[in-house]
């Protein structure tokens, strides 16, 4: 994996086949959590249509009197309570914004998934090309994916995040030195943690591109 860097006005990262598959899958999983259709369904047969997903919730939302708070903590982190001390304001906010927020998030994830899965906007090869005007939206999409992973990993404080890094270092060391019989390793947790770290790093390089790009156009 190589982080994003500026190439011909776009942000370009490199991910090998397996990395692309893993990242595309977690992106599709997060979209599923947000209520989207499965991204993979039509992938093998033909490129995914993009025209009919502009607002997949348009017909479903807006008529509901009130929308209940998500019970899954990961979804609640994507669509948080906007007024914890004011029930009326929180309900009103959710009623007004839930559909639009979900649609925005799903649309971004769909675009990222397409770029990684050979659908619309994909360039083929190992490159993940993000046009400059989509870079911030992609960074936001990466945030949503990382928020879900963080929720599954139980990261609620800065200290939790520090501990995770330490945990992964220990596990990596144990595996490298064939010492994993001594230390109990939760392989799934370590795997999710490493994916979280990789996406964090990828997002860092993309945000750096966005910040630098912004400075150039300001002049």
């Amino acid at each position: 994996m190589r982080g994003f860097r500026a190439e011909g006005g776009s942000a370009v990262a490199e991910l090998d086949d397996e990395e692309r598959l893993v990242v595309a899958r977690i992106i599709a999983d997060v979209a599923l959590l947000l209520g989207a259709d499965a991204f993979g369904e039509d992938y093998d047969a033909h490129p995914a249509p993009t025209s009919d997903i502009d607002d997949p919730f348009e017909h479903l939302r807006g008529f509901e009197e009130s929308i209940r708070e998500p019970s899954d903590p990961a979804i609640l982190r994507l669509l948080p309570n906007a007024a914890p001390t004011d029930r009326e304001a929180a309900d009103e906010f959710r009623r007004l914004t839930d559909g639009e927020l979900r649609a925005t998030k799903v649309r971004r994830l769909r675009r990222m998934w397409d770029q990684l899965s050979g659908g619309d906007g994909a360039t083929g090869g190992d490159e993940w090309v993000v046009p400059a005007d989509e870079a911030l939206a992609t960074a936001a999409g990466l945030t949503d994916v990382r928020l879900v992973l963080a929720s599954r990993l139980g990261l609620t404080t800065d200290d939790d995040a520090e501990r995770l890094h330490h945990e992964i270092d220990l596990a990596t060391h144990a595996l490298e030195t064939d010492d994993d019989g001594v230390l109990p390793i939760d392989h799934e947790r370590v795997w999710l943690g490493m994916l979280y770290q990789a996406l964090t790093w990828l997002q860092e390089t993309l945000v750096e591109f966005v910040a630098t790009d912004g400075e150039e156009t300001d002049v």
Binding site: L78, F93, T104, A140, T143
Partner: peptide
């Protein structure tokens, strides 16, 4: 105004930031 704050909080949630709104002074 509340409506303006709702727009701001919605934008923050869209970016994945954790934001809330409340009456000033509460």
């Amino acid at each position: 105004p509340r409506e303006k704050m709702e727009v701001d909080v919605q934008a923050m949630h869209s970016y994945g930031l954790w934001a809330t709104l409340q009456r000033s002074g509460e």
